[in-house]
Amino acid sequence: MYKVLKATFITIWSLFVLFPIMWAITTSFKPESAVVNGATFIPFLEFQPSLIGWKAILPGPDSITNLITPTLNSFIVTAGATAISLIFGSLAAYGLSRFTYGWKNYSNADIIFFFVSQRIMPPVVLAIPFFLLLKELKLLDTHLGLILVLTSGLMPIVVWLMVDFFNALPREIDEMAMLEGCNPIQAFFRTILPLSKPGLTVAGMFCVIFGWNDVFFALTLTATKVLTLPVAVIALNGTVTPYWILAASTVFSIIPLVGLAFVIERFLSRGNLGGAVR
């Protein structure tokens, strides 16, 4: 009985997870007539597959948009913001895990909450102030400007994850290193950091996901030079919604991150990701 229930649950959940993806993939191979005249599901039977959606977004004579440069921009911005967040975030997290900071009544927990609370503000209201800030710094429509702004949303995640991770690493490790003559900074870089790969991987992965998927800041703070992938795709949403093109570009834009799912799984199975969130 339990086994049947479990199998049913797993099947239903997997179908649910797959359904929108499959729908996006099929839609990306539909001609317009197979979309606007009612739902169609089965290729060849209900509609003749067409490459019109894919041709529109890939280089070639039928291309209406260039998604290659935006993909590169997304890579640069995501990598930059992830790197900065990881470096500064894990340093701060290590500090918060090992030392006691005090200022009036505020404790380490409050400082951690301060980091995390940076994620609370809805981004829309930050549009004007960030815009003004980057304008003054001459960073509008630059990679660096967008990287800095994204960092403010990503570093909190790193701090939140890495504090727990460092807490789980026995203090004896640091002490041993320091007995051997390291100062805390050397101890961190020589012994702690190598042990932190799983934690940094998880934190970095969340940074990549949230950075890659940001639309709002990219839309607000950049124009033509640093067009990112999601923004380029959303700009295809014209007066008439071309679902077949949007579906193709959606599939296109999630492929790099789905690759990431395999990487994460490898870490999980080797068992060394476990400590990452403890």
Binding site: S14, V17, W23, V35, T241, Y243, L246, L257
Partner: peptide, 28 residues
């Protein structure tokens, strides 16, 4: 299954919302 169940998080919410709209939209 681990890989499969991770995939939704990897997709861009604002783009998936468009796909979801095409799933829920009442006529087509």
């Amino acid at each position: 299954f681990r890989v499969l169940w991770l995939i939704p998080m990897m997709t861009t919410p604002s783009l998936m919302a468009i796909i979801w709209r095409s799933i829920f939209t009442e006529d087509i």
